[in-house]
């Protein structure tokens, strides 16, 4: 055991508490976007993939690092874009003035 490990472990435990507390009051309609958003956040493994590829010495390591960067990039961009598309829908939820008209059927599609 080294101090470095204890330090990382401390950070690990504290982060676990923060992760738990920070979303404890979420309404059920946001479960899906929240899952998708946190899915995008663990795409931060991209940074790990970059470090691994950046310090690759052999062809094998380069290949593995390359694969890791591709996969992690997919996770990041796909995750954020999908979440944004889900949340786009919530804009329409606050009734704008023209929505009142639309209720009367004045506005055709």
């Amino acid at each position: 055991m080294t101090n470095g490990l204890v330090e990382l472990f401390t950070i690990f435990i504290l982060s676990a508490f923060v992760g738990y507390e920070v979303i404890s009051k979420v309404t059920s309609i946001l479960h899906t976007p929240l899952m998708s958003g946190s899915n995008a956040i663990h795409g931060v493994v991209l940074v790990g993939a970059m470090i691994v590829l950046g310090s690759a010495h052999t062809v094998g390591e380069e290949a593995l690092g390359f694969i890791a960067v591709v996969l992690a990039t997919l996770n990041v961009v796909g995750g954020f874009v999908v979440t944004d598309r889900m949340l786009e829908m919530f804009k329409a939820r606050t009734p704008a003035p023209q929505d009142v008209q639309r209720k009367d059927g004045d506005l055709p599609e």
Binding site: A16, G19, Y20, V22, S38, V44
Partner: peptide, 17 residues
């Protein structure tokens, strides 16, 4: 640290979710 914090955040909040 970055990976540990972000990964753990998702691990904990994902479990609660």
């Amino acid at each position: 640290n970055l990976l540990v914090v972000a990964g753990t955040l998702v691990g904990a909040s994902g479990t609660l979710l």
